[in-house]
Amino acid sequence: MSFTRMLLVVALAFGLAACGHNKFRTYNGPSVTSIQVHKGARKMYLLHGSDVLEEYDISLGFQPLGHKQFEGDGKTPEGAYFISHHNPKSRYHLSVGVSYPNEKDVAFAQAQGKSPGGDIMIHGRSNYKGTNIGDWTAGCIAVTDSEMEEIYAMVRRNTPIFILP
């Protein structure tokens, strides 16, 4: 193979690789020191101290009023939690885990003879087959896939998240 042909093949390979979308972004800005979710306003804020770094419109659980108490109630939790993990293989593009349930949540549900549920995430929408309008999750916080890529890159494990009514 001639040098020119080899150079052309390598250039073509790099060109094709550049066309693909990589959902894993990098972030080099100020650290996210906390997250605030305002359920009533359907807004989520990534904060560095008291400065808002990013603001997002969100969707919530399909029963958005009140604090999540039991598995299957369709509610998004309220209270102070933290980011527990990153999930690169989420059914909803990418996701980051919220540490619900805490000890208080577990104790309350058990006192009622029920499970508190769990697996609460901030996630994208890619595999959701519904309308993507309004509140549709089982209790999670949903944003667009593009926004989730940004959040995934910016937020670190153990970042506090405050979910307000």
Rank of each mutant, 00 (worst) to 15 (best):
M1K: 15
R5Q: 11
M6T: 13
L7K: 13
V10I: 11
L12K: 13
L12V: 12
L16A: 13
A17T: 04
A17S: 14
G20V: 13
G20R: 15
N22T: 07
K23P: 06
F24N: 07
T26R: 06
N28S: 09
S31M: 06
T33E: 01
I35C: 00
Q36I: 05
Q36G: 04
K39F: 10
G40L: 08
Y45R: 10
L46M: 04
L46K: 03
V52N: 01
V52Q: 04
V52F: 03
L53C: 03
I58L: 06
S59A: 15
G61W: 04
F62G: 01
L65W: 14
L65M: 14
H67W: 08
K68I: 06
K68H: 07
K68C: 04
F70D: 01
D73G: 09
K75E: 07
K75G: 02
P77C: 09
Y81P: 02
Y81D: 04
F82E: 00
F82P: 02
F82M: 07
S84C: 10
H85A: 15
H86E: 02
P88M: 03
R91F: 05
Y92C: 05
L94F: 03
S95C: 10
V96P: 00
G97S: 09
N102L: 15
E103T: 12
D105C: 09
A107E: 08
F108H: 10
A109K: 10
Q112C: 15
G113A: 05
P116N: 11
P116V: 08
D119V: 14
R125K: 14
R125G: 05
S126M: 08
S126I: 05
N127A: 13
N127R: 15
Y128H: 15
K129Q: 14
G130K: 14
G130W: 01
N132R: 14
W136E: 01
A138C: 11
T144P: 12
E147S: 15
E149P: 10
T159V: 05
P160I: 01
L164D: 13
